[in-house]
Design a protein around this nucleic acid. Sequence first.
DNA 1: ATAAATCTGTTATGAAATAACATAACGACT
DNA 2: AGTCGTTATGTTATTTCATAACAGATTTAT
Lengths: 160, 160
Amino acid sequence: MASDCQHHEHHVHHGLSGAALGRALGDAEARCAEGRERLTTPRRRVLELLLGSDAPMKAYDLIAAFGAGGEPAKPPTVYRALEFLERLGFAHRIESLNAYVPCRIEGGHVAAFLICDCCGEAAEFQPDLGPSMSAAKATGYAVRAVTLEARGLCAACQAG
Amino acid sequence: MASDCQHHEHHVHHGLSGAALGRALGDAEARCAEGRERLTTPRRRVLELLLGSDAPMKAYDLIAAFGAGGEPAKPPTVYRALEFLERLGFAHRIESLNAYVPCRIEGGHVAAFLICDCCGEAAEFQPDLGPSMSAAKATGYAVRAVTLEARGLCAACQAG
DNA sequence: ATAAATCTGTTATGAAATAACATAACGACT
DNA sequence: AGTCGTTATGTTATTTCATAACAGATTTAT
């Protein structure tokens, strides 16, 4: 997390738990089945950890939290799971944080984030990239993926 | 660099040398003087390496290339210089590559890049972020900095 | 059943970045 | 010129992030 702030009371907590978490995992399972992909144990576990978190998680946070009894995972276990989750659109990597979040937006989309430098929250949103990318088209580039990360202060942290 | 391609003949080479490099360094020196900042020896050397390169450079590329006689720099030397160059707008970090480029656009601006996954070229351009960021405004975020990185294939690598 | 493909477990290593503290250079002021 | 506060550098060590390589297990299709 960034430079921890004092406004956490004001913050929406994104982490899922209980039935909501179960439903999200079930949805993921179903979407895997459609695509002939397998939500195996380590993949499911990493997704569960991401969905349960209120903030982006670092790879080594996931590694430490992986085991039910507190035993850490080996790094490749988690990195492979993250690779899978990203490929299927269940998770996104936030480059400027070296951290990961579960996807919170339905449907195929460009991932874009508003990241609070004070409390560490990362809010996913859907940018309208049409105008930005028309400049790119002119150069002849064939764009495959776009990363957009905006750093600043969330409403709660500005207020505090 | 990415998965090196065979089309390098088609590519524009961005690296400066000779008089052009000298002019660019002189400009930087002048801009520093205006802002009461100092383009010291290690800072100047790192900027020189970036300006002379045809592609984004990794920090450890810079570390290895730093010494005139082939002696590497110590990591903090280069990381501090990069921090300075970014702060003054002389260089940009490309998050999705862990690499750095000299700034190639005049005036204060948002840095955005088109990155070729084949040849490793990174073209800086000026995005129109108005529409994308109106969504952000609605959430109450105060945005301080924006990173936009588009991955794909440049014109030359599509052709080849 | 068996082959091909995919996924996992494990060891080890490589790459990227920073912490901490000592020393040196600069700028402003008297 | 001296000296004080500030800014920059030098150096050692460590931390953080990520992947290579290969053996073994599991799944899927035939």
